[in-house]
Amino acid sequence: MSHFRVFFKKEMVEHIRTYKLLIMLVVFFIFGIMNPLTAKLTPELLEKFMPEGVLISLPEPSSIDSWAQFYKNITQMGLIVTVLVFSSVLSSELSKGTLINLLTKGLSRTAVIMGKFAAMLTIWTASLATAFVTTWGYTVFLFSDDYSANLFSSVFCLWLFGVFILAVLLCSSTLAASSYGALLLTGAAAVCLAILNIFPKAWKYNPLSLAGKNMELVTNSIMFSSLSYAIGVTVAAAIALLAAAVLIFKRKQL
């Protein structure tokens, strides 16, 4: 069995037994349920809690509102939970020394990085799919309109941004001594991308656009092809970050 497969299997077992997979699936399932429900109930709640005599006119909620909740929740809380869950994925192994036995048995360091990344990717994909399918099913049930478009392409953009963030986190973990260091570096990378968006022309290439333009795709305000440069940059950056993580980890003295 190749080292990658052995290590990927070990990582998945670890995520299952340490409840990381369960936490991710439950949190994303709750988000999935909450999105359409919040969209449906918000106008009713606002009406109910308005002081007597105050009239408020709100448009009838639609599937658009449900997907707006989905992208708001996943790009904020969803990504934060994901980064927190995986923040110690490498640093805890390095600080405890659990990799020593395996590396001295000949385990390739490339397999360690790739195995960890593949396991994080699997869980992120499964969690996002859970939230997406739940939101989609509940939205169809609550709102029988067809205002929402490009659902798959918009969620693909968010998924790809998540992949990029995981690559940043893993690369940061090879550089930082602790999980806090890795979190700090990942946060710093996100802030840098946000600062880059100050320049109007930058959004076309900025990976952050993949987590910011989703609703414009859903409402058909922009074409998917307008994000092609951002997708290309994100894929290239994720590959470069993974390659850097492997190189740094290979040189790390343990």
């Binding site: 080292h3 077992v13 670890e14 340490t18 020394g97 020593i100 036995n101 395996l102 048995k105 000949g106």
Partner: peptide
């Protein structure tokens, strides 16, 4: 190593299987 560290969620046989597969 001086302080051997293992994956606490594994059982001894599972851990040796992991090591064996790597070798």
């Amino acid at each position: 190593p001086d302080v051997p560290e293992f994956y606490g969620y594994m059982r001894p046989m599972e851990y040796l299987k992991l090591c064996g597969e790597i070798t």
